[in-house]
Nucleic acid binder design. Structure first.
Lengths: 212, 212, 212, 212
DNA sequence: CATGAATGAGCGTTCATTCAT
DNA sequence: GATGAATGAACGCTCATTCAT
């Protein structure tokens, strides 16, 4: 009889860690690094403030853990698409739609990245995990571009990182700047019609750019 | 030579205000609203911390004044371009280049807008000055689009606000996300070659999108 | 032609002083010495904060001026009663009623005295005007007591100051402690029925004490 | 002899709380709510200013805790007298003497109540503990009055709360207004002879009032 | 007489963090 | 592995007061 397997262990270190991380993600994404309160995180956690320090050492290290987890998640998402077998234009449209949807569905990620930019990416640079993030999307894009130029779908020769930026910028900005842009232009960017129109627009713009 | 015009007068409310505002802009742009320190602003000011409260009432109100000034500045810039007489394509290229250069040259503005988005534009909304910012760029874009469709330069019918977003997103993102993007892709976005390439890219992408 | 008498002088020093004093009385009576705000007084005054210092020198001196004025007022009130010709019991009843009504009608005075007691009468002691306040009520009481013992109205030999205290305590306490007493015993002491009952009670108690 | 019981333990929350409360009582009683300084309290405490906020949350809440403790103390004192078996007049004299002595011996309580009245009892009203203070003295007085009327000791029919006020007013005023009254009438109210004379006076006055 | 601008000192409060058990 | 108690440093802000005109 293994007592451990029968009893619901009250102190599950992994769960405690994950619990803290989840609450911290929300708090940092909502208030920024300096705006976030360790006390606020502790209060909404199953454990105490002391545990945050026990597991993560400091507020900044907790923030970094949150950031790392957020980046880890997108990397895993990128892998899911099966684009190799699609015609280049279709593959690109799928990839763009996926990026678009990802940012729309993960505002916390978008906010965390914005916050990290306010801090001039100083924490991210300390993290080998993020720094060495092998961004598969660039390889994917390079492959699509190559195939497209080979079969005549695309005419333009372009750096895949630049292309990624063109796509990312639009998808990211829609979410990151939704509040100021929405306020000034009196527009609710998350309205379904707007959402669909923008989703088509960025794909069309990119494709026509590559074909021009 | 009147010495009085050269010397910094002690009791010059306008100068005191402007001095505080300039220092505060830097501090808020660098550290965000919660990260900024009133003490830090005061130290780099000609006057004391007390004066900040004398003129601005609170840290948040000072932040709002900084934000308002930043937005006031771009509005005045927009007015300077004389695009009415140019052919639509040329006018659009000029406008895009101007937006691109503006964001590149005003990273503080970009950062302040990012920060305000982290705060869900709550301060901006309180400011009638910013909320009622009559964004002339939309009228300008609408005019260019109309002329372009009339003379056959453009084929696509598109909402000028959507178009503004397509342009803005790229120009803004290049600056706002330069640190994380640069870190992950090991790229210095402010390098002249990159700068020039991106400046051409966004214009080409937009033009080909409108012509497709 | 005396110009002064014809023109309404805009800057009437005496009026300015009185204006400040009236506002200050309210502020000090409401918030106490340390709770009162010079800014708050200035705001509700026709003039500026600078004038307060011009006329009164400091917050404490202004407070003392307020206190002095309050005491000056009661002294003038005491003189108004014509008790010498009344029978002793009637005179005493009149005097008690007058004290009772005075405290009820001058809660600001009562509050200022309470406040001064919190400060252990330190300011009052500095003021020769208040210290040397020739309290005529004691002479009046002494006279009533003497006449009462002479004509057999009163049997008890009592120090007039002690008697004044017995009367004062009740009248003052009703006003000074109205809030705590009222809260604990759920009673509104300014209700007309209560007012009348108490007014009779203190007179009856004093008279029966002197007659016992 | 266990040394631990003699030494002041460092981590004794109850002691820390009580220590702060004792110092705060003195500070608030001396300087009032707005005049009291959190720093001053902290300095005379075994702990730091931070602990005040740890235990009491804010200056106002600390003040309320002080007030509550002060009221809690008098309630417990009231219970100690065994008056039920005494003849009504004796019982009343004992009760009055007890009230008199209590106010004389607890000037801090008297001052705190005065201060709370300056604040219009706003804090007290927030405290259910004080608001619902079951004032046993009223029941005691009612019982004495009833017995006195039954056995012919007292002739007057009077509301026990009014009677309590007549007694309280004198006892309280002697302490609360000792400074201004003493200054104006050049009298030291705490002098033994005066103290004894006043102690007899209020009892005689009340008794003769009830018998008249 | 009068005023807006300016100020140093200190206020109540909060922060991320660590200690003792 | 976990907890409540404790902490120094600094934070945003306000005070009575004075300066320059």
């Amino acid at each position: 009889m293994d007592k451990r397997q029968q009893t619901v262990r009250k102190n599950d270190p992994e769960k405690t860690r994950e619990d803290i991380l989840a609450v911290a993600t929300e708090e940092f994404a909502t208030h920024g690094l300096s705006g976030a309160r360790v006390d606020a995180i502790a209060e909404r956690t199953r454990t105490s403030k002391r545990m945050i320090y026990y597991y993560f050492g400091s507020k900044e290290d907790l923030y970094l853990a949150v950031l790392e987890k957020a980046y880890r998640k997108i990397r895993s998402l990128e892998a899911d698409l099966e684009l190799a077998d699609m015609p280049p234009v279709d593959a690109l449209r799928t990839l763009i739609a996926s990026t678009f949807d990802h940012d729309e569905n993960n505002p916390d990620f978008v906010r965390l990245v914005s916050i990290e930019n306010i801090h001039r990416a100083t924490h991210m640079r300390r993290s080998s995990e993020i720094k060495d993030l092998n961004v598969s999307i660039i390889r994917t894009l390079a492959n699509i571009l190559e195939r497209g130029r080979a079969d005549g779908s695309f005419n333009r020769d372009i750096d895949p990182i630049d292309l990624h930026m063109l796509i990312s910028a639009f998808c990211f900005f829609r979410v990151s700047n939704a509040y100021t842009f929405g306020t000034i232009f009196r527009r609710d960017l998350s309205e379904p019609a707007t959402y669909a129109r923008h989703r088509a627009m960025i794909a069309d713009a990119v494709i026509s750019y590559l074909q021009a």
